[in-house]
Amino acid sequence: MADQRAVHLVRRPGRALSAEDGVGALLAAYHLRTEAEKGTPVADPDGLPDRYRAEVSDPGAAFADDVVLVAVSGGTAVGCLVVTAPVDGRSEIKRLWTEPAFRGRGVASELLGAALAQATESGADAVRLSVWAWRTGAVALYERFGFTVVESWDGRDHLVCMERAL
């Protein structure tokens, strides 16, 4: 019998996402946690800023031109990551999230490794991302994968911008 907690990755063009993919629920958890960490907690996705609520309600439209990587265990989505199409030779990684019960098992590392492969396949020369400074575990993960801090392209306080050449 297969281990129901085993995780495999699925790569989906953003426009091909459906409600059954579970990505909307993962994005909701990601954004709700982020808003709470920023000191502006909201009770449910309806309280999220419009931009984030749109991602949760229709990830297929929000990420139509991107590739979404989904970690699946026992038929349930337990992690996700978005890789944008290259612009000026650079892809961006967004929305890395792993369900808390699956943390510490290498899911985020698998998603990140697959994202770098996707960016390479799509012709990117570099990958960039931004991460909140208080997410020290995520910053350390990105550093292990060769990302370095670069000058910010985003004016929000406490946001760390990182990049890695491919």
Rank of each mutant, 00 (worst) to 15 (best):
A2I: 08
A2H: 09
D3F: 08
R5N: 10
R12N: 12
P13Y: 06
P13K: 10
G14Q: 07
G14V: 06
S18W: 00
L27K: 09
L27T: 12
Y30T: 06
H31C: 13
T34S: 11
T40G: 08
V42L: 08
A43V: 05
P45L: 06
R51T: 15
R53L: 15
E55C: 14
V56N: 11
P59Q: 12
A61K: 14
A61R: 15
D65Y: 04
L69T: 02
L69K: 04
S73E: 03
G75F: 00
V83G: 05
A85C: 00
V87I: 13
D88K: 11
R90K: 08
S91K: 01
S91V: 00
E92A: 13
T98I: 08
E99N: 07
P100N: 04
A101H: 00
G106W: 01
G106M: 01
G106P: 04
A108Q: 00
A108Y: 01
E110A: 09
E110S: 13
A115I: 03
G123R: 03
V127N: 05
S130C: 13
W132Y: 13
W132F: 15
A133D: 14
W134M: 09
G137I: 06
A138T: 13
V139S: 11
L141S: 07
E143Q: 15
E143M: 06
F145D: 04
G146C: 05
T148F: 01
G155Q: 11
D157E: 14
D157G: 10
C161M: 05
L166Q: 09
L166A: 04
L166S: 05
